[in-house]
Design a protein around this nucleic acid. Sequence first.
DNA 1: AGCCCAGTGTACTGGGCGGTATAATCTCCG
DNA 2: CGGAGATTATACCGCCCAGTACACTGGGCT
Lengths: 187, 187
Amino acid sequence: MVSAARLFARQGARGTSIDEILSESGTGKSQFYHYFSDKDELIRCVHAMQIERMLALHSVIFEQLDSWEGFELLQDTVLHLLESQRFQNGCPIGSLASELAASDELVRIDTEQYFDRKKAAIVRGLTSMKLRGELRADTDVQGLADFVVTVLQGAKLMCKVRRSADSASASFRHMMAYLRSHRTALA
Amino acid sequence: MVSAARLFARQGARGTSIDEILSESGTGKSQFYHYFSDKDELIRCVHAMQIERMLALHSVIFEQLDSWEGFELLQDTVLHLLESQRFQNGCPIGSLASELAASDELVRIDTEQYFDRKKAAIVRGLTSMKLRGELRADTDVQGLADFVVTVLQGAKLMCKVRRSADSASASFRHMMAYLRSHRTALA
DNA sequence: AGCCCAGTGTACTGGGCGGTATAATCTCCG
DNA sequence: CGGAGATTATACCGCCCAGTACACTGGGCT
């Protein structure tokens, strides 16, 4: 499963054969078909696993999203994660979604829920900042959260294509500047 | 070639067979191998064609990017394009890049140049706004252009996954608000 | 007419794919 | 020990894939 994830990131789900995954993981075919009914199920499981892995990895950060430092931490973490793979993979969830969202409805819905959960965490953080009076009362928390998710996802694609963090970090800088433009005098 | 593009958008390049393309376009195999040496070349040609098509389609808008109305027009055009395909495809260039950038270096580089050309058009527009005194003198034109490209790309992925323009249009709204926050008193 | 040849239709090939069948092995319990 | 059931290795199957071979067409030239 972890082998499958690695290969999917490198060559896409459709571009990876079951035999390849098996030889990389050192297991046999009977094991595979014992745990999964077919390749599509494997793809969905890998995708769901990546989603849970990402959300778990960021869960601590998500709880700190009620401060500017929290958002800084979020973008730093994303950049470090991308750098640790030398900007070669971008976002495994986004990549798989791009490849399969149009043809596999279950993958599409799982991805949608992933974005929803990310957005919800951001909404929570921004809302409590608003309640504390750090954000202006007329701040569009929902739209802003969508905006953050969009920028994060776009930035990860930029990294993958450009093999560099330059565009992504510039985008993050501007995103943060915009977020901060909603702060009140008190904050 | 246009059939190939349509199928690639729906099921990805790796998920589309040559036979499928041929039966959809009503041509034979000998024609295909007369014009292309192999499938990879077709993929690259389709990708390059999509890039030129997109840039040509936006060329008029790119020339108007020296005004707020120009940017409004850009985002409206992108949204209309996405809507006309019922948000099922997102960005064909971004999708293909997500799928293949890690394994096909030529596709990656073509995509990078596509982003560069888009960015250059935005830089031109913002620079002339700056020279006319509509943007603050300390505006980071380069970074801002990267930011716009990133948001556009992220928004197109959001449309594809969510099958709705809500996230995208919220993101565009906030992007515009941020751009406008750089205007001078005179503008 | 006779020839040529770029362009086209189509049958074919070898290999790799997803998936299955079957036999061997391990594990647990009497 | 012995046997039953779960787990695993491996040989295999049919299909579909990318790519090739080859026969055919029709228009231009002599």
